Simulated scan of single mutants.
Amino acid sequence: MKYLKMNGLGNEFVVLKSHERLHLGENQVTALHRPQDSLGFDQLLSIEPSDYADCFMGIWNQDGSKVAACGNGTRAVAWAMMEETGKDEISIETEAGILYAKKAGDKFVSVDMGEPRLKWDQIPLSEDMQTIRMELQIGPIDNPILWGPSAVSMGNPHCVFFVENAETAPVKEIGPMIEYHPLFPERTNVGFAQIIDRQTIRLRVWERGVGETLACGTGACAALVAAVRRKLVDNKARMKLNGGDLFIEWRQSDNHVYMTGAVETTGSGDLKI
């Protein structure tokens, strides 16, 4: 099977090109993650036929779990499809719905990520609570380390903590604790967002099933939405991630979130599954 090795701001992908729908088990996915052969990935993606869009995108995390959304992965698949078809705009079917992408410059792609989901049962949470500032804290009751995060779904669940300094935030310590917290029945991605100014957020993300990554597209979208809901930033901001910058806008006109950023193809070949 043909594959591409791609990344979005250092978020690594192996992209499979299949003429039929793929049904990969966890063991098959984890066996394909071979960093020693330059085939390591944060997510395994597939480009498959679709009856409703230009293609269907399958998404698996490094640990073999199948997920519904991946923002940086959507940009990668969109760019691959644009290069193959010569189109400037592409529609991509995912398990979270159909997404629309277009060229935004040389190796830059803009994706309409759709509407954020903000209700507790849409994220989902295991109990009914408001999501703009959740009743969740880490550490002693009288002196918590982190508290009051926001929850947002961009087709996958995100828990966003606002921190004073993202560089010193306990991502690797707190990230896995929150990922598996019983409040999140489908596990969750965990963002650590520092507000720089009204148009800039520094963000680090612990991705479920992967760990901390250089960039997370849906995480950047979720952090922007959470910050706007708290009136901390304007509705359009530069998101400064470990691997580079993403530009996120939550448009009030249609309630959709738009993500723009760079993609890169670093290799290709044949892969036996």
Results as ranks from 00 to 15, higher is better:
1 M>G: 08
4 L>F: 15
5 K>A: 03
6 M>A: 04
8 G>A: 11
12 E>P: 14
13 F>N: 05
16 L>E: 05
17 K>R: 14
17 K>I: 15
18 S>M: 00
20 E>V: 06
23 H>Q: 15
25 G>S: 12
27 N>I: 00
28 Q>D: 15
29 V>Q: 13
31 A>E: 15
32 L>V: 06
42 D>G: 14
44 L>E: 13
46 S>Q: 09
54 D>E: 11
56 F>A: 04
59 I>A: 09
66 K>D: 15
68 A>E: 15
70 C>E: 12
70 C>Y: 07
70 C>D: 05
74 T>W: 00
75 R>I: 01
77 V>S: 08
78 A>Q: 12
82 M>Q: 06
84 E>L: 12
89 E>D: 11
90 I>T: 02
90 I>A: 02
93 E>I: 03
95 E>I: 07
95 E>K: 10
96 A>K: 02
98 I>F: 10
98 I>R: 00
99 L>C: 05
101 A>S: 09
102 K>P: 14
102 K>R: 15
103 K>E: 02
104 A>L: 03
108 F>V: 10
111 V>D: 08
113 M>W: 07
114 G>T: 00
115 E>N: 12
117 R>H: 07
119 K>W: 13
119 K>I: 04
126 S>G: 11
128 D>V: 04
130 Q>N: 10
130 Q>L: 08
130 Q>Y: 00
131 T>V: 00
133 R>L: 11
133 R>S: 15
135 E>F: 06
137 Q>D: 05
139 G>C: 04
140 P>Y: 05
148 G>L: 02
152 V>Q: 09
156 N>G: 03
159 C>I: 01
163 V>P: 07
163 V>E: 04
164 E>P: 15
164 E>S: 14
166 A>Q: 13
171 V>C: 02
177 M>L: 15
179 E>H: 03
184 F>K: 07
186 E>K: 15
188 T>E: 12
189 N>M: 06
190 V>M: 01
192 F>K: 06
196 I>T: 09
197 D>F: 01
204 R>E: 00
206 W>R: 05
212 E>V: 03
212 E>I: 00
215 A>E: 02
215 A>V: 04
216 C>G: 06
218 T>L: 02
221 C>M: 14
222 A>D: 10
224 L>D: 09
225 V>D: 04
226 A>T: 06
228 V>C: 13
228 V>Y: 01
230 R>M: 10
233 V>N: 09
238 R>C: 12
240 K>G: 01
241 L>V: 01
243 G>C: 03
243 G>P: 08
246 L>V: 05
246 L>H: 08
247 F>R: 11
256 H>D: 10
256 H>S: 01
256 H>C: 13
258 Y>Q: 11
260 T>N: 02
260 T>R: 10
263 V>A: 07
266 T>A: 06
269 G>V: 02
269 G>K: 10
270 D>Q: 13
273 I>V: 12
